[in-house]
Design a protein around this nucleic acid. Structure first.
Lengths: 217, 217
DNA sequence: ACCCAACTACACACATCGTATAGCTTACTG
DNA sequence: CAGTAAGCTATACGATGTGTGTAGTTGGGT
């Protein structure tokens, strides 16, 4: 899906990258609504018409950019730590750290995509795919917690998944990190505290072998 | 502030109301980006030009509409229950119920305002005022909890206020109630559970006079 | 019956998206 | 090292939407 036009010209590939880079910096500087195709073209050093030779529409450019950044920023290595955790409770901590580590870089693009999806069905479809994927992660965490017997009442796998999922909201992240000036560190710590207090039941932690009992492998 | 143009004509007042009602239903049906001034005018039965005799811009119409609905829906009576609670922990429960009771009616308008503020400084300013007001509520709750000696670690009044504030996010509400199909009841219960587990320390509830000790009056 | 505010009818300037078309340039290929 | 096709430019166009300008018409209040 990423490499549909793979056998493209060298020049073409360069222009495409320049357009994506231009769009990215412009969006991060001024926000998506303020960024026009003309501006992207100008910053990339091409004609406005040329942009449409690479991207069918403004929305198409945005979604391609989102995927591009998602790939470039090495999402996989950040989530691996979550699934490598010894038990579900530790995984939840890592999940909070992952959100604090990885998502801040996506804020402006996520905002842009969220903005676009309100007026464009294509953007909405793309955004839904991304969020569906996130929800699967949250479900996996909830199931793990449940399997370890540490899912606190009144939570079920379903409700915990949903709640974890909405807590990934960029509104939450942006509100704290941007509007209220929280550091990523502070964000990670307090989000982890919220997760733990809310979803993790106080099991017999005195038994030190508890972690080995419930490992993944 | 609401009645700046109070001495207006009877016809003028009727038209203004018709425009607000038209805009409201249209936004709730199709979302703000899809609603044009021409459509609002048509539904209200006036000329597009006439809309600009009542509202300086599309943003102005939106913010006026937000305030109008906020007043009409009787916000005050919904929040009163929070501050009438016997103690801070109960107030937090009421706060969750308030959010589940009152905010769903505002979803489309809040989405619209949030959308508009990305591209319009005036909308951003108005939205900031509303959110500042919300933050004050959250701070009051946190201070009450702290005063009752039931603010759980690692929370401080500052951090708890901020976290409570971002949890008011319409992303959270919309994600659960719209995307995941939660009922308001379910939303209220689980939000209250999250609040309680996260922010309220397990105090000596056995002492039944604890509530009387920490009342507001 | 009068008058002024409120509204209409219509035209304009401007921004932005997306498309069309003819021609020029650059990179690959034989 | 030419030839050629892909990639790009230059320029124009249609469609929508916002917000303004202006002259004329209507209706509510006195």
């Amino acid at each position: 899906m990423t490499a549909i036009d793979e056998p493209a010209n060298a020049r073409s590939r360069r222009t495409r990258e320049a357009l994506l880079a231009a769009a990215r910096t412009l969006i991060e500087e001024h926000g998506f609504p303020a960024v026009t195709m003309a501006q992207v073209a100008e910053r990339a050093g091409v004609t406005r018409r040329a942009v449409y030779l690479h991207f069918a529409s403004r929305t198409d450019l945005l979604t391609a950019l989102f995927d591009y950044v998602n790939d470039a920023e090495d999402l996989a290595s950040s989530t691996r730590r979550v699934w490598d955790a010894p038990d579900a409770a530790a995984a939840l901590d890592e999940w909070a750290r992952h959100l604090a580590r990885y998502h801040p870089r996506l804020i402006s693009l996520a905002r842009a995509t969220d903005h676009a999806r309100r007026s464009d069905p294509d953007a909405a479809a793309h955004w839904d795919l991304v969020r569906r994927d996130w929800h699967a992660h949250c479900r996996r965490l909830s199931e793990w917690l449940d399997h370890d017997g540490r899912l606190a009442p009144p939570w079920t796998v379903d409700t915990a998944s949903d709640m974890l999922w909405v807590l990934m909201s960029f509104d939450v992240l942006e509100g704290l990190v941007v509007d209220r000036g929280w550091s990523r560190e502070r964000y990670a710590i307090h989000l982890a505290a919220l997760f733990r207090a809310t979803f993790v039941s106080q099991a017999d932690d005195s038994r030190d072998d508890a972690s080995s009992r419930s490992g993944t492998r």
